[in-house]
Amino acid sequence: MSTQTTETTTPSTKTVVHPLVDVLENEREFLLLADLPGVNRDALDITVNGGQLEIHAESETLEYRRNFALGDDVDLDAVEARLELGELEIHLPKRAEAQARKIAIQG
C-alpha cells in the first residue's frame, strides 16, 4: 500500500489537513489506523473506488482528507471500518490465495 498526497481545490472555510496514519500488515490483512479527533460517525466518509481508498471527514474545526492506493491483493468487498475516541481503524483483508488464482475461462 502506498500513499498519495492530494491537493484540494474545494473551497471550504475549514482548513484541510491530512490525518496522521499508521499502516500495519499481517498475513491476513492490512490495518490502517488514523487520528481523527473531533470526528463522529456521521461526518466520516470512506470510499473505495478504482483501487483508491479515500478518507474524508470533518470536525468542528478541520476537514480531513487523504487518499491511499490499494494493491490488487486487497479484497475490496470485505473492507471494514470502526471509529472510536477519534481513532479510525480500517481493516483491509487480503484476497484468499485461491481466489486470486481463479481464472474464468470463457467460450
Binding site: 500500500m1 500513499t3 496522521l20 496514519v21 499508521d22 499502516v23 500495519l24 500488515e25 499481517n26 492490512f30 490495518l31 489506523l33 488514523a34 487520528d35
Partner: peptide
C-alpha cells in the same frame, strides 16, 4: 501510548 495489535508489521508510522 499508541499500541498495535500483536503479529502486525508496521509499514508506515505517523501517529505519535
Amino acid at each position: 501510548e499508541t499500541q498495535y495489535p500483536e503479529g502486525y508489521t508496521p509499514l508506515r508510522r505517523e501517529r505519535n
